[in-house]
Simulated assay, not measured.
Amino acid sequence: MDTEEDMPRPDELRDGTVAEVNALRDLLSQIGDPDAAHDAGVLDDDEYVERKARKLAYTSALAAYANGEVPDLPALLEQMREQASQPTQTETNTANIDYLLMTVGGDQ
């Protein structure tokens, strides 16, 4: 027979969630701004993608917890690694403009 001491307290689940949220906030604050660090030349491309992915994943996980959901952080991190490794719209536009200038010529 289960006694009251054997049954988990309702607050234990909430306490675990609060601890996870606090840990994610702490990790997020340690990442800083990967875009600025990369632009300054402090991070190479691989480290930039990893930090950017972690920042996106932790931010998404915090949003999920705020909505009462429990995120799958490893799956979320893998998804964000893929997203962070894709070129930004600015990079794509710059590459397209460079290509046009190269093929058409920019001094006309």
Rank of each mutant, 00 (worst) to 15 (best):
M1W: 09
M1A: 15
D2A: 13
D2Y: 08
T3N: 14
T3G: 14
E5T: 10
D6Y: 00
P8D: 14
P10I: 08
P10F: 07
D11H: 04
L13Y: 06
L13I: 05
R14F: 06
R14Y: 10
D15Y: 00
G16M: 04
G16S: 05
G16Q: 09
G16N: 09
V18M: 11
V18E: 15
V21F: 02
N22Q: 13
D26A: 12
L27R: 15
L28P: 03
Q30V: 06
I31C: 02
G32R: 06
D33P: 02
D33G: 06
D33R: 05
P34H: 05
P34G: 06
D35Q: 02
A37I: 02
H38K: 12
A40K: 09
G41Y: 03
V42F: 02
L43I: 10
L43W: 04
L43H: 07
D44C: 03
D44I: 01
D44E: 12
D45I: 02
D45E: 15
D46Y: 01
D46G: 03
Y48S: 07
Y48P: 02
V49W: 03
E50T: 07
K52D: 14
L56T: 10
Y58H: 13
T59D: 11
T59R: 06
A63S: 13
A64R: 04
A66T: 11
A66H: 11
G68K: 05
E69H: 02
P71V: 04
P71Y: 03
D72P: 00
D72L: 02
L73E: 15
A75N: 13
A75V: 05
L76Q: 12
M80Q: 13
R81P: 01
R81W: 05
E82M: 00
E82P: 00
Q83N: 12
Q83C: 00
A84H: 03
Q86N: 11
P87Y: 06
T90F: 08
E91R: 07
T92E: 13
T92K: 09
T92R: 10
N96G: 09
N96S: 12
N96T: 12
I97F: 04
I97Y: 04
L101N: 13
L101Q: 10
M102N: 12
M102I: 01
V104I: 09
G105C: 09
G105R: 07
G106V: 04
D107A: 15
Q108E: 15
